[in-house]
Design a binder for these strands. Sequence first.
DNA 1: GTCTATAGATCGATAGAC
DNA 2: GTCTATCGATCTATAGAC
Lengths: 197, 197
Amino acid sequence: MAAQRADTLPALAEVFREHGYEGASLALISKATGLGKGSLYNFYPGGKAEMAAAVLADIDGWFETEVFAPLLADPDPQRAVAAMFDAVSDYFRSGRRVCLVGALALGEARDRFAAPVRGYFAAWIEALATALVRSGRAPAAAVAIAEEAVAGVQGAIVLARALDRPKVFERMIGQLRERLDLQPVGRPAVDRTGETP
Amino acid sequence: MAAQRADTLPALAEVFREHGYEGASLALISKATGLGKGSLYNFYPGGKAEMAAAVLADIDGWFETEVFAPLLADPDPQRAVAAMFDAVSDYFRSGRRVCLVGALALGEARDRFAAPVRGYFAAWIEALATALVRSGRAPAAAVAIAEEAVAGVQGAIVLARALDRPKVFERMIGQLRERLDLQPVGRPAVDRTGETP
DNA sequence: GTCTATAGATCGATAGAC
DNA sequence: GTCTATCGATCTATAGAC
């Protein structure tokens, strides 16, 4: 059914997001991927830890190309920042979808994945701060604002899930947009369920 | 060793914070509390679920009396909001200590504790919004700002832990203080390790 | 490459002595 | 009230047939 290891990543990511690292048992993973344990260990000899690491790398790669790279390279940094908010709002399904990286940072397996977790957030903050500097902000202020925005996204996910109100996520993203002096670009909020990592 | 069930709550809370709900095995809990499984089931016949529920109730009670009530009742609402930031900064150990309620909202056991998790955040937002209204804000704006502040605290914890930089937490709390037009009251940052839930 | 069967450890929970 | 012993279930991981 799964010709390559990469084909299993979306299902794997969903299981880890929904159940956490400890809660994602091989039985759940087997059901979600449609693969027996033997097949899973064929793709991931390192077992569950390697599966989670592969998912993290996949997520990091997606953000790298879809979010961080445009922030660093788009000739119009303001537009790049606006596109970032569109992308994260889509990616996190208006807060209905958990950020696996953030959940791992809070959760039980924190030490095990400390390096990739730190790298993800550091790259995000650095890319956003770079865009803010290119749009005219002072470097020190840019970093502070970037940290505030990235943390704001994470906090919005926590709060929207805790209250079970996706509108809270949307409202907070809107507030962050305003604080970064941007308007939504109005990209259609297409449903991309299962498409992105 | 533990004369009453309440005596076990601090150790229980720490285990759940450090390992999450699924990761907090009875073996870990037994070691942290110094009690055998038999004693634990004597205090908590419902097992691990009842232990976590008791911890959540304890945390909620602490915030209710130490944070929410002053926000609602302090004759000087500005001072109450400033005291709130002092209290949460102490409580979360500058981001070194995870918010168990937030972690549960993101994590595996989300559905099981949905009601107390929602109640905690709803009470916090309502109390903060009330204080903001009493200090002169429009009701609608007060709720939006309160949500932003509560989510900001949660995001600050995620980011500070992910980056392993407590200073990030402190800086973000400072930004939130400014946004709510407040100055730190300069209460000494005493170490209260193990004292609060 | 995928499966079933199973090992070995650990899980939550219970029973019963003291 | 606290302990030890233990149950049955579930866990991760492996072995080996196909």
